[in-house]
């Protein structure tokens, strides 16, 4: 999709409800340097969500959508799960794939987009739960990394199959007792970030969504590195408050606890040398732009008598 196409037909614009006018007038499509700070001052690319009240996934969606470098040229590939309930409400192109197939679909899509639009950078971002990424779809997930497919995989890790009532998943922590897994889990949480690094991902990050600036940085870097170098993986802890017996207001605290020292989700990043070089270049470019803008502003200031 091109940014220029996100407009209404003039003849019928006056019958469109306000949220669509806002999407055209104040959404941040095409804005350079867009980020989580736009939330509240511009139209978000998520209208409502159909998740439970207080679900951390909804926060994650908002931060991710605010952080994509070019939402008008991005296609999400989703899979079955809580995330798939949200995609109908998202104003970014998206495809729902067969459960577990998301990385295979994304591989074909990315290659096709490259051929169809050789002059435009089209980003493909897989966004799926831990069941689709690590259990049922692990084959497709890893094969896409082995093949060095140039797209980002984001896993919403809620440590179980939440959508179907709390079955055990590979990313569930050892010993956890879920509603549909009463005996408790017998083996350790799958260390997918390490697997991703060994499988060829150039950028891997594992974090919670309690801090929007961290999420923004991770998503931005993951998308840019996938665009230029190769596969990237971001694992976000989005606890299912229902399944772990928390209240709506306790999701944030749960994430903060999980990322504190000794917790399961202390932030970690793996960056390949090639990716690090790209990040350094991007940061230098950003710095130079800011400096130039500052100097231009200074030059415009009238000299006082």
């Amino acid at each position: 999709m091109n940014k220029d196409k996100i407009t209404l037909c003039e003849e019928l614009a006056d019958i469109m409800p306000p949220e669509y006018h806002e999407l055209v007038e104040t959404a941040t499509y095409g804005k350079e340097g867009r980020g989580w700070k736009d939330i509240g001052s511009s139209k978000e690319l998520i209208e409502q969500h159909s998740l439970c009240a207080g679900c951390p996934e909804s926060i994650a969606f908002r931060y991710i959508l605010a952080s994509l470098p070019a939402p008008e040229n991005t296609v999400f590939v989703g899979s079955t799960g809580c995330t798939s309930l949200v995609f109908p409400h998202v104003a970014v192109q998206n495809i729902h794939s067969l459960f577990g197939n998301q990385n295979a679909i994304a591989s074909g899509l990315k290659r096709t987009l490259k051929r169809r639009f050789p002059d435009v950078e089209k980003d493909v971002v897989v966004l799926a739960g831990d069941g689709a990424t690590v259990d049922i779809g692990l084959d497709m997930t890893m094969q896409s990394w082995f093949r060095q497919e140039k797209f980002t995989t984001i896993c919403f890790d809620n440590e179980l199959y939440a959508n179907t009532g709390g079955q055990e998943s590979g990313l569930m922590q050892k010993g956890f007792v879920a509603k549909m897994a009463p005996a408790g889990k017998n083996f350790d949480k799958v260390r997918l970030p390490e697997i991703a690094r060994e499988a060829g991902c150039h950028y891997v990050a594992m974090l919670t969504v309690s801090k929007p600036n961290r999420v923004e940085k991770a998503i931005r870097q993951a998308v840019m590195i996938a665009r230029e170098i190769g596969p990237t993986y971001v694992q976000l802890y989005t606890p299912c408050i229902l399944e772990i017996g928390k209240q709506s207001m306790e999701g944030l605290d749960e994430m903060k606890d999980a990322e504190s020292i000794g917790g399961r989700f202390v932030m970690k990043e793996y960056i390949s040398d090639q990716a690090q070089q790209l990040i350094d270049d991007m940061e230098a470019e950003e710095k130079a732009k800011k400096k130039a803008a500052k100097e231009a502003k200074k030059a415009k200031k009238p000299v006082s008598a």
Binding site: K5, I6, T7, L8, C9, E10, E11, L12, I15, M16, P17, Y20
Partner: peptide
């Protein structure tokens, strides 16, 4: 409703003309 190509604009115009001719409500 969305101006994604030239034909969409033309169709929107024709639809508005049809609604005016009838008259009929337009609900998107």
């Amino acid at each position: 409703l969305w101006n994604w190509n030239e034909n969409a604009t033309k169709k929107a115009k024709a639809i508005r003309a049809l609604a005016d001719a009838l008259p009929a409500r337009l609900i998107p």
